[in-house]
Design a protein around this nucleic acid. Structure first.
Lengths: 219, 219
DNA sequence: TGGATCGAGTTAACATCGTTAACATACTTT
DNA sequence: AAAGTATGTTAACGATGTTAACTCGATCCA
């Protein structure tokens, strides 16, 4: 049973305290994560407008003020959701990049992956790109890091396309912004105007396969 | 002076009452319009999030509850703003259509006009297309009417382009949706990510002049 | 003319929100 | 043991949308 075997070298006071500190630290982080998970869930279900601290707290059985021991305020909590969302988004983009070896087809594949992520996570996508654009100006945030990383993927693809000739010889940045606008617009229409008619988004997305139109098999 | 000339036929009791009724009706409509104007102003300055009935009322020197004699509730008031905004938008689109006679150039001109309207009226544009998409499902509203009208203009242009050969021979609707997504995305990026850098939007918008690229002067 | 009715405005109140202050309790440190 | 810290609570404030109850004057009808 419990004390049938005794530790021949009992832990020092210092060791006990350290273990206790770690346990408490872990519990604190666990609760922080539980709040964050509950918050992300509430945000998904309710959207930004009906997202409330009290609702998040009640979801995990704490009073609302407890959240303020783990997050400075509502904005801080939403920024944590933003960081998490942008991280998942950047990962999805990198995976879609790695999945398609042909550079010219890669652009279309990434475009599709972009739109699919957006419409699959409508409320989070809107938080990322619509509702608090100024939060991305904080360059030290994880969100800003992922934001610049994904734009970098697009810009590199465009530069490659221009240099390889399967994109017109223009300034890459405006062209990248133009393409970004297209996928961003598809997501936004997909989660608003086309919400009741997903086939309409699918039909529009077939145009991703149109460019490059001429060389089915190079050489 | 005032009574130097007397009306030879004094108004009947009935006429007086009718005039009074009309005056009161006019005053009611005037206050309704004053509320609507103030609301649109508050909405422009504060955005949807900080738009409040009390703020609108205080702007015109009435108590908040007065608004409820002229609008059913906050949603009703915002819908009135939406109707007004969509009407102005549809008019701007029709003017841009009339201004450019060449059909192939017209698409680019309308695209530019679309984006310019959106970035010029950021908060109203977001109410129109982002924040309450379900309100457009009420087909009897002025907003829905203008919404379908503007989409019709785009779709007709695309059909014309396909039949005349300066657009690829594809199903017009997905192509129209694709183009819509592009301009919509440009507006959204323009009022969020590019807000601090208007030149970036301008640079992207130069691509409107790229298509059709080949025939500067037909024949 | 006098009393009923109605329109248009008011104040007071309710529930909900984010947030802070004050407090309780348990654990850690000294 | 005492002091301090971490983590939770309840109570309260001001702002929000909205409703109820009311005032007051104009209108309508006898």
């Amino acid at each position: 049973m419990a004390h049938s075997e005794e530790n021949p070298i009992p832990p020092t006071e210092r060791q006990v305290r350290e273990a206790s500190r770690q346990r408490r630290e872990g519990e604190k982080q666990a609760l922080r994560q539980a709040i964050l998970d509950a918050a992300s869930e509430v945000f998904l279900e309710k959207g930004l407008e009906s997202f409330s601290m009290r609702l998040v707290a009640s979801k995990i059985g704490y009073s609302a003020t407890t959240i303020y021991h783990h997050f400075k305020n509502k904005e801080d909590l939403l920024r944590a959701i933003l960081d998490q969302s942008f991280g998942e988004f950047a990962q999805a983009m990198q995976e879609s990049l790695a999945a398609e070896p042909d550079p010219s087809r890669r652009m279309g594949a990434m475009g599709k992956a972009y739109v699919r992520f957006g419409v699959a996570h409508p409320t989070h996508y809107q938080l990322m790109y619509n509702q608090r654009p100024d939060w991305l100006l904080d360059e030290s945030s994880l969100a800003a890091e992922a934001y610049h990383l994904t734009y970098g993927l697009l810009l590199e693809g465009v530069k490659e396309g221009v240099s390889q000739g399967w994109l017109p010889p223009t300034d890459p940045r405006p062209l990248a912004d133009w393409m970004w606008a297209t996928v961003h617009g598809l997501v936004m229409l997909g989660i608003t105007e086309f919400r009741e008619d997903p086939d309409r988004l699918e039909a529009a997305m077939t145009l991703f396969d149109l460019a490059p139109p001429s060389h089915e098999v190079p050489q």
